[in-house]
Design a protein around this nucleic acid. Structure first.
Length: 576
DNA sequence: CAATCAATAT
DNA sequence: CATATTGATT
């Protein structure tokens, strides 16, 4: 109990000042080690015999955060005595001898790791990790709530960089063994991996879904390829910097624990099975209750987990519903035509996500979009909307959370605050977020259907299992006239495609001549975009209620181009 | 350097 | 086949 999670959280420049108890009978060795430790700002208390060390520790346990104890053939028992006596202290064993059984014994007795002499700076630098682990494993038992989690996050984030650094070069020296894999199973990461919280349960959030690969994928500050970051670097651990959720340490040969590990490359499952701390997946953080803007988004779920592969591959970004939601929000906020990867990335505020990831996703997003609205236009994503009324009035300054305060209070939202509507390509979620308003439904104003496009673009997203189909439907849809509505947009259309086909093949088939609609649609579209990008403004033009026009426009987007004049009015729904 | 588009990999 | 990453272009 030398150090608690909270202590760590308040430890400014964490590793610095770490109090190290050094027990080494070899004066020279002790000296050498001590000077190295001190060079990295650790506070070292050196002892040459275990008795002293023990009494010092028992006398003032709080004076030490971690111990480095030498074990030699001769003093073996003595060292073990210390090891056994100072259970509370994370202990690193070190020795000249290279005896597997001795190593194992140490580990078995609770040593955090076993390092061979000589102890390089790199090896020594790592010892703080044990303190962290110990701290978390001890204290979290009861709490485990977010408080701890956040602490963990913050600490981990601070450390991340360093870890990366050391990881980068730890391949060189002999065996670093598993630096920290032997963490007791106590760590209960609420099985975050598969657990996704119901949208309504804010606090659970995603637990931690860690992306499989475990390393940081965003190498903005990793030293992987360039050792530039070499410097202690704790100076830079701003939010943006603590990229991934997961500190990885690990040498290629990590069989020590039990042969089973051998994950060839990234079988997350393996990892999970074997290692207690595992969290096979790494997720880019997801903020659950993000009311939209101004959140303290971050809180990535991270956890220093042991296992990771040395392979520096880039992790695969898993565009979860949440992520996508953020993405869409960002896009919408920026305004479709101004949504570029870098900006989106910023808005999303998701650490670990790279611009490329976003770009890629954007590409897909656009693709889908145009796929779904082949007809009416391509001006949706104009490269450079040359003239066309660009909504240039405002923006330049980052739209980010630019929601002027009082911009509406449609107090009456049909939907409960948490009506979880899951992300889809449409603006839906975005709108909700953009609105800050609780529900998903924005603009209660009947008739305004900003999301004309939304339905059309809904794209099936792999929803979390917990999400039911309805969620994918068109809850977001404005309330179009009943008749038409259910002609073409059944309450539960699971996906856009589905809807389309239905529409195409049946009911709506009768619709024809959409020509005259084109213009209307365009206008609508434009307005919608404006509204989206500047939610705080009064709704642009009085988009008339979802008059047939808008509905038709919507239909058009969905590929239903033909709409017989009559059918519009008459309620005769079904087939022919 | 960043955005897009095209190709390739999973 | 869909989605994500890598690579090539501009």
């Amino acid at each position: 109990m030398v150090c608690t999670a909270n202590d760590l959280s308040e430890w400014k420049d964490f590793p610095k000042g770490l109090k190290v108890l050094l027990l080494d009978e070899d004066i020279n060795s002790a000296d050498e080690i001590r000077s190295k430790l001190e060079a990295m700002d650790y506070a070292v208390a050196t002892f040459c015999n275990e008795e002293e060390a023990l009494s010092a520790f028992s006398g003032k346990p709080e004076s030490f955060h971690v111990a480095i104890v030498e074990v030699t053939v001769g003093n073996g028992n003595g060292s073990f005595k210390f090891l056994e006596s100072a259970k509370d202290l994370p202990i690193v064993m070190t020795s000249n001898i290279d005896c597997l059984s001795t190593m194992m014994k140490c580990i078995a007795l609770g040593a955090m790791e076993f390092l061979h002499k000589p102890l390089s700076e790199d090896k020594l630098r790592n010892i703080w990790q044990h303190v962290v682990h110990k701290a978390f494993n001890a204290g979290t038992a009861t709490i485990q709530s977010e408080s701890v989690k956040s602490v963990e996050d913050s600490v981990a984030s601070k450390l991340q960089l360093k870890v990366e650094i050391e990881e980068a070069d730890n391949g060189k020296s002999d065996n670093d063994a598993e630096n920290e894999n032997n963490v007791p199973p106590t760590d209960d990461n609420n099985s975050g991996s598969d657990k996704y919280p119901a949208p309504s349960t804010p606090q659970l959030k995603q637990g931690g879904r860690l992306l499989d690969d475990g390393d940081c994928q965003d190498h903005t500050n990793c030293s992987t390829e360039k050792e530039t970051a070499e410097q202690e670097g704790e100076s830079k651990f701003v939010e943006t910097s603590f990229a991934m959720a997961e500190v990885s340490i690990q040498v290629d040969t990590e069989n020590i624990s039990d042969g089973k590990i051998k994950e060839e490359d990234d079988l997350s499952s393996v990892t999970r099975a074997e290692n207690p701390t595992s969290h096979a997946q790494n997720s880019i953080d997801n903020e659950k209750s993000d009311g939209g803007v101004g959140d303290r988004s971050q809180a990535s779920s991270l956890r220093t987990s042991g296992v990771t592969k040395a392979s520096r591959k880039k992790m695969k970004v898993d565009w979860t519903a949440d992520l996508h939601k953020k993405f869409v929000q960002a896009v919408e906020q920026l305004g479709v035509d101004q949504a570029i990867p870098s900006k989106i990335l910023e808005l999303m505020k998701v650490e670990g996500l790279t611009r490329h990831n976003v770009a890629s996703h954007l590409q897909k997003y656009r693709m889908h979009k145009r796929h779904s609205l082949p007809k009416s236009d391509d001006r949706r994503w104009p490269q450079q909307q040359k003239d066309q009324t660009k909504r240039s009035c405002y923006p330049t300054h980052k739209p980010i959370m630019a929601y002027p305060p009082p911009y509406q209070q449609h107090s009456n939202h049909p939907f409960p605050p948490n009506s979880s509507v899951y992300p889809m390509w449409g603006a839906t979620a975005a709108a909700a977020a953009a609105n800050h308003l609780p529900g998903v439904q924005m603009w209660g104003t009947p008739g305004y259907s900003p999301w004309a496009a939304s339905a059309a673009e809904s794209w099936h997203w792999k929803p979390y299992p917990a999400i039911h189909a309805e969620a994918w439907g068109c809850p977001v849809m404005p309330q179009p006239p009943p008749q038409l509505l259910y002609n073409c947009l059944p309450q539960n259309q699971p996906s856009f495609y589905g809807a389309t086909s239905i529409a195409d093949n049946h009911h709506c088939s009768m619709l024809q001549n959409a020509f005259d609609l084109q213009p209307a649609e365009e206008v609508i579209d434009k307005v919608v975009r404006e509204a989206i990008s500047k939610p705080w403004l009064p709704l642009p033009l009085g988009l008339k209620p979802p008059s047939t026009d808008s509905v038709l426009a919507e239909l058009c987007r969905q590929g239903i181009s033909a709409i017989p004049p009559h059918s519009i009015n008459n309620g005769s729904n079904y087939s022919s």
